[in-house]
Design a protein around this nucleic acid. Structure first.
Lengths: 297, 297
DNA sequence: CGCGGAGTTGAAGCGTTTCAAACGGGGTGG
DNA sequence: CCACCCCGTTTGAAACGCTTCAACTCCGCG
């Protein structure tokens, strides 16, 4: 990887120091500034490489290094800096009044963090690194400067926002599943799909989060997550060893994840409009519900 | 309201006709084109009026009129046109393979529809009008033209995207609640808050969706929704008459919505980092969990 | 070495799901 | 105009699954 050491660019130094009000507290050692390259940032955001190679100038972009369990963003803090995960992983959560940590999502490289603060200027969630991680930091002023030199960044950010939006639909479909095993199966497939899209192994997963965090996100008790893990393992779908998970039977796992709340009374007579949006084109294989192979029916 | 009749601007006529590939099927009468004003669009997107009055030119923006139960967007369709709800309301859903309709969210005036298609160009969800509704249609080409004449639109779209993102956190917190009554209470408060922010009555709600749709979004059986309604009504918090809901005891409803999955083992000893993000500023009152008045503790 | 946290497993209570039936309103057709 | 049917909604009862409390193991760390 590129070096994130103390070779701080003098050019952006004043900006980095003021990069985010979230680090106002005591996080002296948890956040370490550095620099990265605009080209890598665009690649992370999913901008096509062939287009970037032509027009992207070799510009530096501020990078923050966050230690494991370090707090990147504080709920309630006044800041609207945008972050893009460069390496590592994060969990986004809100702390309820009774102290319960409600995990909202997990973020991997390429994902945007802190987008919700764009319109109000106030952080809506806490973001905590689950391992040593680095992020690109795009303050509003920084963003404007970059846009002047590379208009492509604008499109990249918008695409990133759009991608985040479609991610939330996926997470929603995880949580609303009836059975806890189904939720967990969807969660595993969700992780797997995102590992695959990051170019990594899609069958061997090393979970960065604890059972409690998974349970929080899935909306079940953490004991239930543990039980569901063993159930899926006993069914021969998974091999689970603490936080190392291996998918043994991808098809079976997909089948398990497919089971939905039965359409009960809706079988046959749909409310006029609903009958029209069956499926009429190859949709995005959203990791679990739509598999690549045709259905046996 | 402004007239949406056949007075179609010749300027944008060719664009309107090609506005979205989603209407390729048979929806001849469900979508009716018209025009609206850029200024109203910006207001809907939450751009500050004082800023708009100075710089916003009086431009026309394409408007689509959708009949009740009409399909605005088709899952799987190739299109990346952006829509902004102008009047009425919509439900966004995905159809599972077994025919079950998974409702993802409900959209009200000011909300963006179809943002998820920006990065892939393919619709991820079906969007259906729950009543006669109108939307602003912003095709990619349309958007570029508008941006040249009014750079503010760019910022407005980005803010809209950001707002949608923070909405998803709210919906997630609805679904993960333990008890079904809590989910319903949060849902009602969520609707109420959005009615209020639209300038309408926050206590008298006319639900546009059926119990089944609510149940789908909340991840429970529709009978459970019905039971939860009566439970909340018996507790004196709500007055429910079919689809008309009146909030009788806002404080009590908030209290009911606050109850979370108890922090079980976490009472007192938090995992190092988690203890640091308590709450240290006035966060956005996200309708149910944070009330305006100070806590009795 | 011992403590504390993470993870697993067990047993009991209870809330939700599920199947079932009945009510009511809105629509259509006789 | 009334009857009828369909559908949304409500309510009941039984079974299932999850939650909760509890005990236990394993592991890292002071």
């Amino acid at each position: 990887m590129t070096n994130l050491s103390a070779a701080v660019m003098p050019l952006h130094n004043p900006i980095i120091r003021q990069v985010d009000a979230d680090r106002s507290q005591r996080s002296a050692a948890t956040l370490v500034p550095g620099v990265g390259w605009l080209q890598e940032l665009l690649r992370l955001l999913g901008v096509t490489p062939q287009a970037t190679d032509q027009t992207v100038p070799a510009l530096h972009v501020p990078v923050l290094r966050v230690q494991s369990d370090g707090v990147l963003l504080h709920e309630g803090a006044r800041s609207s800096t945008l972050y893009v995960v460069r390496s590592g992983s994060f969990k986004c959560l809100r702390v309820q009044e009774d102290g319960y940590e409600q995990v909202l999502t997990f973020a991997q490289p390429g994902e945007l963090l802190g987008c919700e603060a764009l319109h109000a200027g106030i952080r809506q969630t806490n973001v905590i690194a689950m391992e040593v991680s680095t992020v690109y930091a795009l303050a509003a002023s920084e963003l404007r400067q970059l846009q002047q030199r590379c208009p492509l960044i604008e499109e990249a950010v918008r695409q990133g926002l759009s991608r985040q939006l479609s991610r939330t639909a996926e997470t929603a479909e995880m949580i609303v599943a009836v059975a806890s095993e189904v939720r967990l199966a969807r969660f595993i497939l969700w992780l797997s799909a995102r590992m695959a899209e990051a170019g990594q192994s899609a069958c061997r997963l090393r979970l960065r989060m604890g059972r409690r965090d998974i349970a929080s996100m899935l909306g079940v008790a953490h004991e239930t997550v543990s039980r569901s893990f063993t159930t899926l393992a006993d069914a021969g779908l998974l091999r689970v060893e603490n936080r190392d998970v291996e998918i043994l039977d991808l098809q079976g796992l997909r089948a398990r994840a497919r089971s939905t709340r039965a359409a009960q009374g809706d079988c046959g007579q749909r409310p006029a409009a609903a009958a029209q949006h069956a499926r009429h084109g190859p949709t995005l294989a959203s990791c679990w519900s739509r598999s690549a192979e045709p259905l046996p029916s």
